[in-house]
Amino acid sequence: MTGRVLVTRLGHMVLVVLAVMTIAFFVLRLATGDPARLVNPPGTPENIIAQTRAQIGTDRSLPVQYLTYLGDAVRGDLGTSFRGAQSVGRTVMAALPNTLSLAGLAILFSAAIALVLGALAAWRPGGLFDRLVLGYAALAQATAPFWLAVMLILVFSLRLRMFPAIDMSSWRSFVLPVTTLVVALSPVLTRTARQSFLETLNEPYIKAARARGLPNWRVFAVHGVKSASMPIITLIGLQLGFLLAGAVVVEAIFNWPGIGKLILDSLASRDFPMIQGGILVAAVVFVVMNFVVDLLYTLLDPRVRAGQT
């Protein structure tokens, strides 16, 4: 990636984040009434509400609020929660690793499962295993993630007591939420892996490698996997959004202290700075991850590295 490409790319990322910030800000402001009233519980006297309004700054005009928000955000200040005095930046950054570890593990396992299942299915298309893999993909894709999470808790937490039902406390806590996300994410990846294996295996260089005397497993493991994993990496980049959405649901069900739960909880009390902060950080993570995916792609594919596509 040349310097120029890099600069353009970074510019794009900034624009995307800016667009997301803007949309989030105005959607939140325009869709509801007075946040100051929503911050205070029922029964709060009007003058206290007015006080709150001044305190959280919603008494100023929208453009002023927006520019203040942008200005503060540029300086790294995401503001203060409407509820209490918590710093949004600190709260969101504390939640971020929890979401990232969940999503990261889900991606890791999904990609591994997709590669293995996709490869085995592509080994003999139309065979029994291929049918089983496609069956799994179809079934998993048709399963609503939240439903699966509920059922997993019912069986493994409440009945068998094998894994915790909520929270992030030990490695066991990861099992059920990660499983839920993997089931949600792996079907698409598995199908892609299978298809890209099939396509790769039809490439002349695969036949050429076999003609050179390489055993099938080696052709498959070295030549096939390396080439076939590229579309999967691209797809993971595209699926990050889906994963984040899934994380919201999973975090809500498992009480996972991540960004998704933070946003949902903040919605309940119209804590706009917190929602905005959560969405902003999600967007930043998202564009950065996509950037990383592209870098990874570049590392794996020398053609892209040399600037050809």
Binding site: V150, S157, L158, A165, I166, A252, I253, N255
Partner: peptide, 18 residues
């Protein structure tokens, strides 16, 4: 701790986490 969903609260109690 605030947990909005009653089922999640119950799950936590029954699985010994609360």
């Amino acid at each position: 701790e605030f947990i909005q969903d009653p089922q999640t609260r119950l799950n936590a109690l029954l699985s010994g986490e609360a």
